[in-house]
Simulated scan of single mutants.
Amino acid sequence: MRHLRVLCAIADTGSVHKAARELGLAQPSLSTQLRRIERTLGAQLFVRARTGCRPTPLGLAVLSRARPLVAELAAIVTETRAAAARAADGFQLRIGATASRAIPGWLRLLRARLPRIEPTLRMSGSANALLEMVAAGRLDTAFVHEVEGSALRVPPGLRLRVLVEREPQFVTLAADHPAASRRQVSLSDLAGDRWMVDSTVDGEWDALCRVLRAAGLDSEILHGDYLTAYSLAAIGEVVTVSQPTAHPRPDCAIRPLEGDPIGVRLLLAARTESELDDVYPELQEAYWAVARDAPAYRQWLARARVPDEPEPSDPREAVCRLVTGRPGTAAGPRRP
């Protein structure tokens, strides 16, 4: 395996000198190893030139077999270290998340069920960055939002579990805004308003631009964090996209957008299915607790049920019926 790592390093850097530095070896030592590998295989794997090293056709064939093996070994090492850490007393469960009102409840439930485990939290607006951290072993799990129309870059080998297949995004506006009196707000009702969104949230800026263009609107969009956006919305300076679970404020109105033009998929990511099993039930319970606590979302869920069917006692049933057209659970299928 050491020899395979040597070949991958030389190919990736295009230089024996750079590969030696990356591997922490002296260049003569690495050159000797390369010659030994080539003698063992009976063929030249790299063409040396003053501009660097490039693989021969046979070298490319060897590399195509070597890279998956090196990657698999790295995954084994990462997962083994994570399992060993879980077995130790005082293990820290490293959680990453994009913003959600479900997070405090999730952490509380995890601490109650797993008193020996101390969850730590890393927040980020970038779901892609959090997924990379899980894949690299710097986080154990991440709860992220995938904005519709902006697919996340999921690293190979990660396991995903769907919490909600499509969560509608609502709008927050001043309580005295003319549209606040409506049960649902159309984009045309907001034609004269400026929007504010956080462009550091993966996919959110693009999603709003697409939706406004589709509605024939050329609204001004400002960049700002959501704490600032809600404060400005309260005084009528802007309107802003908000999660349906957002806590109501007396100076703001949270309303569904007519036709639910913006949606996100809620995902839990980890390296193994067992790691998902360890934390998913608490996340599911925490999410639906805040969903029931949000008046606008609770009303939306009640309207989302299939006509002429009994109203579901659990809001998860309403989401599942809306998405799939049949009863079930809002937690989607497990995906590799």
Rank of each mutant, 00 (worst) to 15 (best):
M1E: 14
L4N: 00
A9C: 05
I10C: 00
V16G: 03
G24L: 07
Q27D: 15
P28W: 04
L30R: 03
Q33P: 00
R35Y: 01
R36M: 02
I37R: 00
R39I: 01
G42T: 02
V47I: 14
V47K: 06
P55V: 03
T56P: 00
G59Q: 00
L60K: 06
L60Q: 12
A61K: 13
L63N: 05
A66Q: 03
P68T: 10
P68E: 09
E72L: 12
L73E: 13
L73K: 08
A74G: 13
A75E: 15
T78F: 00
F91L: 00
Q92G: 04
A97N: 10
T98K: 00
R101K: 08
R101P: 05
L107F: 03
L110Q: 13
A112Y: 03
R113G: 06
L114C: 02
L114V: 01
L130H: 04
A135I: 03
A135S: 10
T141I: 11
F143H: 12
E146Y: 04
V147Q: 13
G157V: 10
L158M: 08
V164N: 04
R166E: 15
R166L: 10
F170Y: 14
L173S: 07
A175N: 05
D176G: 03
H177F: 10
S186D: 14
D189N: 13
R194S: 13
V197G: 06
D202A: 11
V211R: 07
L212S: 08
L217Q: 10
E220V: 11
I221S: 07
L222N: 06
L227W: 05
A229H: 08
L232D: 15
L232T: 00
E237D: 15
V239L: 09
S242D: 15
Q243F: 09
P244Y: 03
C252F: 02
C252I: 06
A253H: 07
V264E: 11
V264A: 14
L267T: 03
A269P: 04
S274Y: 00
D277Q: 12
D278V: 01
P281R: 10
L283M: 11
Q284M: 04
E285L: 12
Y287K: 07
W288L: 13
V290N: 05
R292G: 15
R292M: 14
P295M: 09
A296L: 04
R298M: 10
L301N: 04
P307I: 10
D308M: 11
E309V: 11
D314P: 05
L322W: 14
G325S: 08
G325V: 06
P327Y: 02
G328Q: 04
R334V: 03
R335Q: 15
